[in-house]
Structure formats: structure tokens, C-alpha cells
């Protein structure tokens, strides 16, 4: 099997891993798997297309605006999801609220971009040859971003007081409250950082994979699959789960064709859930 397949798998796996990581960031303090998360990916792709592709803005300026937009989206998303969840007593409130938020964002993208798929030039157009295979700088950037986000997230959760508070809330919200930790701002923070993370990968990965305005749900589902294989709530699980489905997809795709790649990832999900109902690194959760 050629090395190129593995490199492509590593790239795709990194994309899924970042998506899963951003979901984990939201999940930890809220116990919510956010169906609207993938819309952040589309935001990154859309703004990349708009700013780099159409307006020809300089890179730094584009990234700054992207982050500001992601902050805004995270803020709005938190209200759209948490308000119904707090007001409704239904066990299914979270899923319906996040699904509705996903639909609203998706149609907003569809309204703005009719018959457009997002693609633009690589930020740095250069390939690195590795034993006959090629790794473009753009792909390398995504892989590095994945590692960077994992390390920063890990260090943030372990080293900073706010990060530790997030872990504390994830474990027991009541006890966190009596220690004086305010849960609501932490939840806002989680939605905002989660959106920034996923928007960044959407921005960086789009030149390689073409993204449609309505593709948010697809990326959400890929992220879910990765997170669930790894174990919901575990950053390590998100990364490993992402890499597993990325590699699997790439290998099976080259071997049996495109559809079978997608098949194989969902099949892997089903197998893992039957064998290990809480994922590879997950603890038993009941969700909301």
C-alpha cells in the first residue's frame, strides 16, 4: 500500500480529530453533543473563501476576522442551545436544540452562498516529498494544528485554574458551585473556544477538501463518530478516534472505492460500540 494513502489518511484523521476535540470542549462542562458544531467548520470555510478567495485579504487580517467571527458564532450558539435546554424539561431538549441550531446556521450559509462550493488557493503552495509521496504544506499545517490544539487544550485543562474548573464542572456541577465556580460563564467559554477551534480547521483544510455550504452536518457526524469511537468527553479519545476513522477511510477508499470508506468508518463505530459501549477511552455517561 502506498505511503501517499497513509499521509492522506493522517491529514483526514487530523481534520476529524480537531472536530472531535472541539466537540469534547463543549461536551465537558455541558454534557451536550452539539449537532451545530460542524457549522463552525463551514464558517471557517466560508470566510476563507470570502476573505482569501474573493476579497484577496492578507492572511493575518483574515485569521483575525475569522477568530472574531467564531467568537460571535460561539456566543450565539451558546444562547441558542442552552436557553431551550435550561427552560425545557425534556430529556431530548439538547439534541433538538442543537439540531435546530444546526439547521438555522446551515440555511443561513445556503442563503448567502447559492451554488457555491468553498475552495481557494493553498496558503502556502508547496509540497514536501517523502519517499516518493507528497505532503503539501497545507496538509502539514492541519496536522500540526491538530497536535497544537491537543497540547494547548490538554495543558489548559491541566495547568490553568479555569481549565481545572472545566474538569471540575464536568465531574460534578453542584460541588463546583459550592466552591464558588460559576458554571454559566464556563459554559459560554466552552462554546466560544470550541467554535474557534473548529473554524480554524475549516479555514485551513478547505483548500484541500472542497466544502459545500450545507456540509456542516456531515462534519458534525464525522466528529461524533470520532468522539464516540474514542469515548465521549476524552480529548485523547477524540484524537485517536479521529485518526482511526481518517486512516480507515483513506485505506479502504483506495482499496474498494469512495463509498466503502464512509461505510468502514460507520461500521467501525458500530463494532466498537458493541464491543466497548463507552468507546475506547470513555467513562460511562448518560448524557443529559
Amino acid at each position: 500500500m502506498s505511503l501517499q494513502i497513509w499521509i492522506d489518511g493522517l491529514f483526514a484523521g487530523s481534520v476529524f480529530a480537531i472536530i472531535a476535540l472541539s466537540m469534547t470542549i463543549v461536551y465537558q462542562p455541558t454534557r451536550i453533543m452539539n449537532f451545530a458544531q460542524g457549522e463552525g467548520f463551514v464558517l471557517g470555510a466560508a470566510l476563507g473563501y470570502q476573505m482569501l478567495g474573493v476579497w484577496k485579504w492578507p492572511l493575518i487580517q483574515s485569521v483575525v476576522v475569522l477568530i472574531l467571527a467564531a467568537i460571535l458564532m460561539g456566543f450565539i450558539m451558546e444562547r441558542m442551545v442552552m436557553l431551550p435546554v435550561q427552560l425545557s424539561g425534556s430529556k431530548f431538549a439538547w439534541i433538538i436544540a442543537t439540531l435546530a441550531a444546526a439547521m438555522i446556521f446551515q440555511s443561513a450559509f445556503n442563503i448567502k452562498y447559492v451554488n457555491v462550493t468553498f475552495s481557494y488557493f493553498d496558503i502556502i503552495e508547496k509540497d514536501i516529498p517523502i519517499f516518493g509521496a507528497k505532503l503539501s504544506i497545507q496538509k502539514l499545517l492541519v496536522i500540526l494544528l491538530m497536535l497544537l490544539i491537543f497540547v494547548i487544550n490538554d495543558q489548559f485543562l491541566k495547568r490553568t485554574l479555569w481549565g481545572r474548573s472545566i474538569r471540575a464542572i464536568a465531574h460534578n456541577p453542584d460541588t463546583s458551585t459550592i466552591l464558588g465556580i460559576p458554571t454559566r460563564p464556563v459554559i459560554k467559554l466552552a462554546f466560544i473556544t470550541g467554535t474557534i477551534v473548529i473554524a480554524l480547521v475549516g479555514f485551513l483544510a478547505t483548500p484541500v477538501i472542497i466544502v459545500a455550504p450545507a456540509a456542516g452536518l456531515f462534519f458534525t457526524i464525522q466528529g461524533f463518530t470520532a468522539a464516540i469511537i474514542g469515548g465521549v468527553g476524552s480529548p485523547k479519545g477524540a484524537v485517536i478516534g479521529g485518526l482511526i476513522i481518517g486512516m480507515l477511510d483513506s485505506v479502504v477508499r483506495s482499496w474498494l472505492g469512495g463509498t466503502w470508506g464512509l461505510f468502514s468508518t460507520f461500521f467501525a463505530l458500530a463494532v466498537i460500540l458493541v464491543l466497548k459501549p463507552n468507546g475506547l477511552f470513555g467513562k460511562r455517561v448518560e448524557g443529559r
Binding site: 485554574l161 481545572r164 474548573s165 474538569r167 471540575a168 465531574h171
Partner: peptide
């Protein structure tokens, strides 16, 4: 908090 170290537990106590 079982996954936090003893010291981290203490530091969380001084959050305010």
C-alpha cells in the same frame, strides 16, 4: 474531584 491532584483540588477551593 478524583481525577484532579490533591493540590488541584485545593486550588479549586480558592477559586473565589
Amino acid at each position: 474531584f478524583p481525577d484532579h491532584s490533591v493540590e488541584e483540588n485545593l486550588q479549586l477551593g480558592s477559586f473565589v
